[in-house]
Design a protein around this nucleic acid. Structure first.
Length: 537
DNA sequence: GCCT
DNA sequence: CAGTACG
DNA sequence: AGGCCGTTACTG
């Protein structure tokens, strides 16, 4: 069922990035066959190159073996440690794919084996603060709460892969697969601090070590988020996730400034917190009448930086001012009504209760629906800010027009108390997203009003929607940004490749990739798979 | 705010 | 369209 | 200098 299970040591599709280039070795392949193969390459949106030097992958006839291919190409097998030699694949892979009308998994059976004996180990990265991730697929039944223990120092640098000591033959194949999985130069990601490539689990364990620093920075980020200075807030947020990953108490300016995503300005502020125990800028903000009001107003659902500022300019300072004097939108009215309740976290168990209610009503309408609670709940958090429920149906049809009936059913029994956002374009053709944002209340004593988000999506978008709705927000942005680097784009609907942008606007939308599972999306992006618990940045 |  | 929101 | 997620989705 799961085509992308991690033990099959295969690659499903080659990411269509500029480096995933293919060359067809003409030897032993007739002209007609060559034409067919060329067309196939293009048909599958792979990049064909005219000369072997530029090719990451060589497609060759099965009559050859690896030394023969390399001799034709005038390449020296023994140089493989220094150079990154192309991967030689049997042309059968392409013919099989044509037969299936889809790229078939690039299993090791398709790859020409090498007789070569590899050198020992790569130089170690002793200078790196820490190497976080060195997970290899090899004989490891997936471990969820991975103990990817950093070697000390701050977990900052990401090395996608490391050549660990290899003394058995299997490693060779493993390396090949690894290379195939990462057609990028040396299998590394593009330059940058890609948090979507890292596990958030290390951060989870280190909540106490630098807590004072994190709390103060978070307070600043929260405040900046309620102003129009969203990029500054973004930087603070990224800095926080970096510090979370540090396994030791930060105690010198030099190590702070080295951390990715932390520059001079933030380093100084962090050092101030360490050195003096206080953060002047934050205290200024917290004692500022303006920031206090902005923060107060900004916690009303539906009130952003601009409305908050507007209200402040009108002289409003308290929630009562807003309640009595401000012109409130529908959403802001609801937001104000449940001001305190919406600021509270929801215990995990209660999320499960809410999920059960929604499931009951939805399944009563259409049996066999796939209903998955996402968000921080799926990421395994003990408490959640709201409840995010994704609904689809494997038949690809039964989801249509389903949202309104579900909402009606939930409303009728008193479970839903207020609506915030309710899209009504459920009659549109496939692909259309349908979402509901509202407020629910479980029956019984001492219950609180909770934010509930429901999306209903066509099944062919399940993986992208699941990925999106599971988050975290920073994780999504990081992953989408990475896709952007590959001339792809990732949204809650699809992962497209071959996108052409001009001045940051898309000229060519590219073509959608087949994304049956979340795993497939990670693979396309050269990322190690991260289960939901590891996306909690 | 940080990064290319 | 600007504003706000979702992960 | 200019990007930082999404041709995201919804409200008014």
């Amino acid at each position: 069922m799961n085509l992308f299970n991690e033990n099959n040591a295969s690659v499903h599709l080659i990411p269509s990035d500029p480096n995933a280039t293919f060359y067809i070795l003409p030897n032993g392949i007739g002209k007609d066959r060559r034409t067919i193969f060329s067309n196939a390459i293009q048909h599958f949106h792979l990049q064909l190159v005219a000369s072997p030097e530029n090719a990451r992958f060589i497609l060759a006839d099965e009559q050859f073996d690896l030394p023969k291919v390399f001799s034709i190409l005038k390449l020296d097998l023994s140089e493989s440690e220094e150079k990154s030699l192309p991967i030689v694949i049997q042309i059968k892979w392409l013919t099989d794919s044509l037969k299936e009308k889809n790229l078939v998994p690039l299993t090791k059976d398709y790859i020409f084996r090498t007789p070569l004996i590899r050198k020992k180990t790569m130089p170690s990265f002793s200078q790196e603060p820490v190497i976080e991730e060195k997970k290899t697929i090899k004989n490891k039944p997936k471990r969820r709460l991975s103990d990817d223990q950093p070697q000390g120092g701050c977990a900052t640098q990401v090395k996608q892969r490391r050549y660990s000591s290899d003394d058995d033959n299997n490693d060779m194949m493993e390396d090949y697969n690894d290379t195939v999985k990462n057609p990028f130069k040396n299998g590394e990601l593009p330059k940058g601090n890609w948090m979507c490539s890292m596990s958030s689990q290390t951060a989870k364990k280190n909540t106490e070590i630098n807590k004072d620093i994190i709390d103060k920075l978070q307070a600043m980020a929260d405040l900046y988020n309620k102003t129009n200075d969203k990029w500054r807030a973004y930087s603070y947020q990224k800095a926080i996730t970096t510090i979370r990953r540090c396994t030791k108490r930060i105690d010198s300016y030099e190590e702070i400034i080295k951390l990715p995503g932390i520059g001079e300005s933030l380093a100084k502020k962090i050092w101030e917190i360490i050195d003096t125990g206080s953060f002047e800028k934050l205290e200024d903000f917290q004692s500022s009448e303006y920031m206090t009001a902005i923060n107060l107003f900004g916690n009303i659902w539906g009130c952003g930086p601009n409305i908050a500022k507007h209200w402040y300019d009108q002289g409003f300072r308290t929630l009562n001012d807003v309640r009595t004097k401000a012109k409130l939108s529908q959403n802001q009215t609801v937001g104000l009504k449940y001001y305190d309740e919406f600021l509270e976290r929801i215990p995990r168990d209660e999320v499960a209760e809410i999920e059960a209610v929604v499931k009951e009503h939805a399944l009563a309408l259409v049996p066999g629906l796939t209903i998955q609670t996402c968000g921080s709940y799926r990421r395994g958090k003990a408490t959640c800010g709201d409840v995010d429920i994704l609904i689809t149906h494997t038949d690809g049809i039964s989801h249509q027009g389903l949202l309104i009936p579900i909402i009606d059913s939930l409303r009728k029994c008193g479970f839903l108390t207020d609506d915030l956002v309710l899209s009504d374009k459920y009659e549109e053709d496939s692909g259309s997203h349908v979402k509901y944002f509202g407020v629910c209340l479980l029956p019984g004593e001492n219950r609180k009003h909770r934010r509930l988000d429901i999306i209903v999506i066509p099944h062919n978008e399940y993986a992208c929607a699941l990925l999106y709705f599971t988050g975290s927000a920073l994780f999504n942005r990081s992953m989408r940004n990475l896709a952007h680097q590959y001339n792809m784009y990732l949204s809650q609907h699809r992962l497209n490749t071959g996108v052409i942008r001009k001045n940051n606007s898309k000229i060519n939308m590219g073509t959608p990739l087949y994304t049956p599972t979340e795993e497939s999306i990670f693979k396309y992006l050269n990322l190690p798979y991260r289960p939901p618990e590891e996306r909690d940045h």
